[in-house]
Design a protein around this nucleic acid. Sequence first.
RNA 1: GCCUCUAUAGCUCAAUGGUAGAGCGAUAGUUUUGUAAACUAUAGGUUGAGGGUUCAAUUCCCUCUAGAGGCUCCA
Length: 573
Amino acid sequence: MRIITLHCDYIKFKPLKKALKSVEDLKDMKEKVVKDPLVVLTAVEEGDNDQTIKHLIASIKKTAGEVKAKHIVLYPYAHLSSNLAKPDTALGYLVEAEAVLKKEGFEVTRAPFGYYKEFELKCKGHPLSELSREFRTDEQKGKLSSTPPKKVAKESGKIILDRRNLKPNDHRILGEDLGIFYLSDDIGPGLPLWLPNGETIRNELEQYMRQVETRHGYKYVTTPHITKGHLYEKTGHLPYYADTMFSPIEIEGINYYLKPMNCPHHHMIFNKLVKSYRDLPLRLAEPGVVYRNELSGVTYGLMRVRHIMQNDAHIYITPDQLKAEFVKVLELFNEVYKVMGIKDYYFRLSLPDFKGNPEKYSGDPTEWEFASEEIRKAMKQWGGKFTEEKGEAAFYGPKIDVQVKNANGKEETLATVQVDIVVPKRLNLVYVDEKGEKKTPIVIHRAILGSYERFVAFLLEQTEGKLPFWLSPIQVRIVNFTDRNVKAAEKILAQIRKELPSLRIESDFRNTTVNDKVRDSELLKIPYIVVIGDKEEEKNTLAVRERGSAKPKFGVSLNDFIKEIKHKTEQRE
RNA sequence: GCCUCUAUAGCUCAAUGGUAGAGCGAUAGUUUUGUAAACUAUAGGUUGAGGGUUCAAUUCCCUCUAGAGGCUCCA
């Protein structure tokens, strides 16, 4: 049931004509006037029951008491709902409500049900004079949350990759063949499941970033996935982001949203941690999970998803620190991308287009100019190549985007560094400067890897699945030559595991040819295949095949092999 | 989300308005192999879901779901 209560000076209404054939004829078609009423516009909905009426009466009593109204006008108003109860049911409940309210000592007028009526009222206009309420039974609440707007097939089909249109290095093909991720019809579009091999890669990347970022002075934090809606109203994100945010979840009468970005959370942490300019720069980092309602037509593989784990960080600085800190971020890009072996990318300086589309950007244009200029200077000091693009800035500031191409040659933004000159002010973020004055910090939002989803997708496509040793889900496979050699191979496996406990090594002792086992390992892009045969048993050595090489190295000593692996792990090769 | 296309075995693909096939993979047996595919046999399917037309639908039509390309948007 939905209602609107209006505390009025008066209401006049007059039935004109039946709206429903089934209602009884009215004896009295005269105009009625009620003075100082509490008018309750009501719409009885499908599924309303006695519980709903109890809520209705309690709510009317409360409001009437607060505004000191003695006369209640129950006015059927079907337009409040698109899911109305049947007329008989609705009328029955209204009559019941009328009777109960009369018993409670109110004067009650019930406007005729099922008639077109002319009406005129004058609302008093004080804060409590206009209220709307919605009463839902538990059952209706359940329906709201569990009934999707579209019918879902009873049994979900499987998801089929149409490989004919895909390049062999497309991450969706590699993702399936190498066991990286899986899209289940039962989970939903844009919501990939990371399989063990994929999670291994993602976690290696995360651990690496934690290590590097900690060395660069970042502090790691963790923030919740759902948050009260009013935070996004305060930050001003809501109007810009409403389309990409999922519908709110109601908890104890308050709307909570799945967070579409981590910034506001980090800003709250800033508030807790920062008092003085001496506390700056503050660099907060988080592998933060955000949820964005990407249109179903644009999600694909791991590139474009609705559950996004960002390699996120926010750097809080004074205006003086902007350029230097920006250069540091650019240097961090160099360091990380070198380790990843990424070469095919370019930086794009995304600036506002104040002439073409000024309403897209909020805040003070001179601050925009300052921020844009500082970034440009930072880019020049850093010395790398970049292009400039007007109209690509975020609503809160200019930014740098790292642009790459996917397997199809389509451009994607891999990572980003954004300067925020708007939101800190809105959220009243302050620090005290050298002169004891309160100042607003500037925030650099940055994601070096962008999101883990897209980064892994991109890495797979760039490397054709031949990931560097340290990122390979399976790093070494040990293969027996014949059944005779299983024991010796197991012994060597145990020795390697003892020396290198975190090495991802596994065995393939199937009863098939060496050629067959080598082929399978090569198809899985495993960096090292170690074969143990009679010769190896005799000489106590290994036959080591590096991924993709034409011939194995025979006679490698276990020690040398372990040394090589250790070196590669430490150097992240 | 919109426009176009697609959905057949775990994977890659055939076929048909009248009982659905192959290769690879899987399983079992044989084989004991020197660096990208040993041999034989067996199992595996309500042809994405729901509805319609028809004596009969996997095939024709509609709806839905998912995927692909494009648009738009984005990390």
